[in-house]
Design a protein around this nucleic acid. Structure first.
Lengths: 115, 115
DNA sequence: CCCATTGTTCGATAATATACGAACAATAGA
DNA sequence: TCTATTGTTCGTATATTATCGAACAATGGG
């Protein structure tokens, strides 16, 4: 419990929507890959239930996410915003590139929730 | 990730409401106490933001929870149900005693979410 | 400069969630 | 048996969320 209860509630709310959870895990997985330089089988959660067999890099995140989830662009945009508001990810735009990163602090908080 | 995504979404949904999170943590904390035989300062999350300085045992859970949260009994009952539906707790009634337990499987799942 | 692509914002709508009080059921004690 | 307590269920009101499409803004390429 390394964070206020109300903050945990916010994080959990962001992850309580299945679509958003999926998006978050995509980004999380991508971040892991790019940090460790390899795909970690443990995190290949997407292949199981999701539809994104050819997921590239999350730098062109948005369109790919759109492509593989049956949601409109406005909805996806909304979900990205929610994840940002909950402090789970940060997104920045560099020209055409839309770069997403998982917020390490949030990851630690989640890991430390009941630990 | 030791559970299906959709199950995680369910768990997070249950914990996404601040009142319900508080209730869950009360039960969690009580379960820890009774298992280890001592209060663990790390889990005294309730004192921080909550209102239950004299929390006894969760065996008479319901009324105490009611007493220290500003919610009607029907609402509390509803929240308990939600926590049960998400698989986070189990409740059983023994006469007047309403005994709650945290579901250990769910705890493991939460701990294993990003681990 | 025009176009295609990509993301945002707005307004609408349908679905879900939160909460209450009233009525009810089960239980223990007087 | 009557009563007080405790939890459940039901109907309802209000608030929040999820989603869409349309209109818009920014960007890079031709």
């Amino acid at each position: 419990m390394i964070m206020k209860q109300s903050n945990y509630a916010k994080i959990f709310k962001a992850l309580s929507n299945e679509q958003r959870l999926k998006i978050f895990l995509m980004i999380y997985e991508e971040c892991l890959k790019s940090e460790t330089g390899r795909g970690n089988a443990e995190f290949n959660v997407l292949n199981e239930e999701s539809c994104c067999p050819c997921l590239g890099t999350l730098e062109k995140a948005f369109s790919m996410v759109c492509g593989c989830m049956n949601l409109s662009r406005s909805t996806i945009s909304h979900h990205f915003k929610e994840l940002q508001n909950a402090g789970l990810i940060t997104c920045e735009r560099e020209g055409q590139i839309f770069r997403c990163r998982v917020n390490q602090g949030a990851v630690e908080a989640i890991k430390g929730f009941l630990a």
